[in-house]
Amino acid sequence: MTARDTILGRIRDALVDVPADETPDDVPLPRAYHRSHADVDAPALFAERVADYRARVVEATADTARATIAELLAARSLRALVVPPGFPEDLVPDGAWRRRAEPLDVGELEAADGVLTTCAVGIAVTGTLVLDAGPGQGRRALTLLPDYHLCVVRADQIVGDVPDAIARLDPSRPLTFISGPSATSDIELDRVEGVHGPRTLEVLIVRPSQEHP
């Protein structure tokens, strides 16, 4: 008998109280909770909640995004900036840094001190960015090893709350939910930002131009 048979057999023996004709759907599962706790403008709430994690949030319009990115990057005095494949070329400013593109090995990634990406979804209530390794985001290691991450999120990518985000995301892709910079409270429960992931996270919210003429 394999361990698989043993375990499945034990489970069936353990569940003798469950009627043979009961199906999972026969077990009631009330979903009486709200679909969203966001009652205001989602991008505004998102900005507030991301900032609560001590990540810097900046807003721009489609017209000013490139200049704003240039300013943010210039302030970091980066040596090497990783730009993943598929990142909108018109948003990449020139600067004093060396631009790094794939393929990159671990050593090269470790040597880069910044990464500029898009994201798949923003969640307003929890101040969360979700990356799905799609265009402009690259594979997961790109946003992990460099110490500085600037993430660009379009206002229309920001949903109100967790249920909307889960519905929008494709679970077959590798997903990373990011809520503020990495942190630990393991020492006397004192929160320290920046352990292994990027120690600095900045988020740029880009609204359509017509909203702010």
Binding site: R49, D52, Y53, I123, V125, T126, G127, T128, A133, R139, R140, A141, P171, S172, R173, P174, L175, T176, F177, I178, S179, G180, P181, S182, A183, G197
Partner: peptide, 17 residues
């Protein structure tokens, strides 16, 4: 409201992880 990082993966992804 949310922990800093949650990772999900489904099997393996060529070229990533």
């Amino acid at each position: 409201r949310m922990n800093p990082y949650t990772s999900t993966w489904t099997g393996t992804t060529p070229g990533d992880g």
